[in-house]
Amino acid sequence: MAEDVLKSGDLPENPERATLEGRNKFMGFWFFLGGETVLFASLFGTFLALRNSNAGGPAAEDIFGLGLVFIMTVLLLTSSLTSVYAMYHMKNNDFKKMQLWLGITVVLGLGFLGMEIYEFYHYVHGYEFGFTTSAFSSAFYTLVGFHGAHVAFGLSWFVALMIRNAKRGLNLYNAPKFYIGSLYWHFIDVVWVFIFTVVYLLGKVG
């Protein structure tokens, strides 16, 4: 019956795909990520077209510091790994450990976000490189900012799920939610790898 999905314990092998609703969510979310890919591809295209249009304002090689960005990259990549651990424990029906690893993921993500905010602050106040400075600055803040907004949304998503289900544990109803949350997180990670390459490395090198 309907309430069965809310029972925790005794879950099947892949709880996230055990129900039709779960399978639908799983598949729908993959499609959603397909759309997100186009979204970021469009933003990347725009950025690439405008990355040298600094209109007399600061250019990429003037402002980017790879050190900070490297640490941010490490943080976000590690958080992807920890979310994999969380999903591993979900499949083993170990709710406590899943929560623990998700918590670590959130902390790492917050660290990333904090550093990004610092980075932007630094550009604006240290180099007078604001959103409206040039076409390049607009494209930079839009692309990286969209990614940052995705990170922030993903973090609130994880936190909401963790708090909501803290007491009742894992069941067939919330397992898909955790699972697609982690899918989303991986996606954000992959996008960051591209941002790191296209925006920062390319901006620094040439």
């Binding site: 725009t46 959103f131 409206t132 607009s138």
Partner: peptide, 20 residues
């Protein structure tokens, strides 16, 4: 963003490109 927040994606004077 261009219209309401002063971005320069399509503004030729600030390096923007309308063809995008």
């Amino acid at each position: 963003f261009d219209r309401l927040f002063g971005a320069n994606f399509f503004n030729p004077d600030m390096g923007g490109n309308a063809i995008i």
